[in-house]
Design a protein around this nucleic acid. Sequence first.
DNA 1: GCAACTGTATCTGTTGTATAATACAGTTGA
DNA 2: TCAACTGTATTATACAACAGATACAGTTGC
Lengths: 123, 123
Amino acid sequence: MISFEHFTPEEGIPIYLQIVRHIKRGVAAGTVVHGDEVPSRRVLSALLGVNPNTIQKAYVLLEEEGLMASHAGAKSYMTLTDGRAAAVREELLRNDARAVIDSLRQMGLSKNEALSLIEAYWE
Amino acid sequence: MISFEHFTPEEGIPIYLQIVRHIKRGVAAGTVVHGDEVPSRRVLSALLGVNPNTIQKAYVLLEEEGLMASHAGAKSYMTLTDGRAAAVREELLRNDARAVIDSLRQMGLSKNEALSLIEAYWE
DNA sequence: GCAACTGTATCTGTTGTATAATACAGTTGA
DNA sequence: TCAACTGTATTATACAACAGATACAGTTGC
């Protein structure tokens, strides 16, 4: 069963997108693997204190990407080939890198300054 | 006069917030300094192809943060003490660092792996 | 069979974003 | 002075995103 223990909602970003992101990061980390059971819409909605439709919206996105499968009446499970999981990881890493690099560059930082910044805030 | 030459709108983020971000990054980079003239609402709206109200919404936010000042009938200018500019820079850097670090950590990367990633994508 | 779960579909309402059309008032400079 | 710019304010409209309420339908296990 996929864990939402360390899920910390952040305002300014739609909840359903944060749910998608949380699961994708789990896939990238390898803590979410093929065949893992996904919490039901009602269970997760109660856990997070949101509407079941909000969960459904997130799950539909994951299904459209082929990362999970649902069937009326039955539980839902992750559907992850090795290649698909690796692709998710690459996508997230690339997006993160691109976003932060663009931003830091626009602020005039050099590569070394950027690396020092990340190192300083890593803790 | 503040330049919008390298302003590249990105979908998914409200235009007025992108304008605020663009100017703040200029402040952080030192390319926008105290006393710099800000394009008028009408001029910038024509340049970007958006409604004047959208520009106004961005400028109101900047005014509320004390980064610029407007007076009816006159042009608008940046109002930046050295400390204020430094604070804007620190805030943007900290937010960028925090966002990317949180994400990479959730994907299971170590500090060195994160640094290598940034270096690899910097180009 | 049936209770208790599962996913699915539809409708409603609020909010944010952006546009449009004006109107009014203050300043600046020739 | 006065034309041409500035900022400011109001009202209306449209649309999409987001989330909530509710009802319906399929499965699973006893």
